[in-house]
Design a protein around this nucleic acid. Structure first.
Lengths: 161, 161
DNA sequence: CGCCTTATTGCGATAAATTCAAAATAAGTG
DNA sequence: CACTTATTTTGAATTTATCGCAATAAGGCG
């Protein structure tokens, strides 16, 4: 109950620092994202409604979009998934997604510090000023791998001819 | 007019190799993607209709999805954009996207060969078996950068307070 | 060469995620 | 406390993509 206010105040300060008003909606969304990293807007809405039941979906979209623009939140879009949000910004860490179950894991930056931020441009390409390098590792997590090997009733991937 | 058949035959062979029938729809889609890399389904439909007017949107979605599963096409989803497709598969190259105008550039793999395929797992994370590492550089291209500096009538990004 | 089986495509409807416009509300300021 | 305007809500629309089933045609076979 008291630990509530630690983060609450920090978020409030950050909002003011960005010239934004401190509203219960924003605080509820920020708290929800912090508690449920790698969550889509809908899950964030559900989580935030635990402490602010009258919150609407549209508000969540607006708040998420705005806070992402401010770099208070980070947004990434795994394939075949709605956009996911997290509060970890600044450190440029990456993500590993299981293409089978959708589980997401954080992965520290692969090349040291501000790493992947210097792409090897092709000779004919016009270089851009890179702001972030979103690295999306796609693979199969251990659980799903195990589940696929068991031949039993699991008609998962019978394509590829 | 003749150069048509070179690629045509190659695609046909590849389709058969994957146990797929060779249809004009598939050939039209493949040709369209090859001619317009980094294009969304809608643009591919338009391009493919140039040579196959009766092609439908749904067929394009089905074909793109299927060929992507076969790894004959590669699909990636830049933020705030529909999924894009390209014929370059196998080499694991990356992409740089201008967050302002949406322009996409190919970027060769940053770390040499099969590079980014070995993430640095956190101690507590359960490693996955990585299949591909999709690296998405996000930044601002030279043109947009130039356009933003000119104060004139360009009410583009007046947020951030 | 034409038939037959079955993959593939077309059609119509539908879903999921996100965005838009305008009215209602409330944060911060004086 | 009143006022200004950012923020949220309300209600609907848009965009991107998928689903089920009927229609079609590709490739194998007799």
């Amino acid at each position: 109950m008291t630990e509530h206010f630690d983060g609450q105040d920090a978020w409030a300060a950050a909002l003011r620092a960005h010239g934004r008003r401190v509203t219960k909606q924003r605080l509820a969304v920020l708290a929800a994202v912090e508690r449920h990293p790698h969550s889509p807007a809908e899950s964030i809405l559900a989580a935030a409604r635990a402490e602010l039941p009258e919150l609407t979906a549209q508000s969540v979209y607006v708040v998420l979009g705005d806070l992402t623009d401010l770099h208070m939140l980070r947004r990434f879009e795994p394939p075949h998934s709605p956009a996911l949000y997290e509060t970890r910004v600044g450190d440029n860490h990456h993500h590993a997604i299981c293409i089978s179950c959708g589980r997401v894991e954080d992965v520290d930056c692969a090349v040291g510090h501000a790493p992947c931020l210097t792409p090897h441009w092709n000779p004919d390409a016009k270089p851009m000023t890179i702001q972030i390098a979103d690295v999306m590792y796609q693979g199969i997590c251990q659980d799903c791998q195990r589940a696929q090997q068991l031949p039993p009733h699991s008609p998962s991937q019978e394509k590829e001819k």
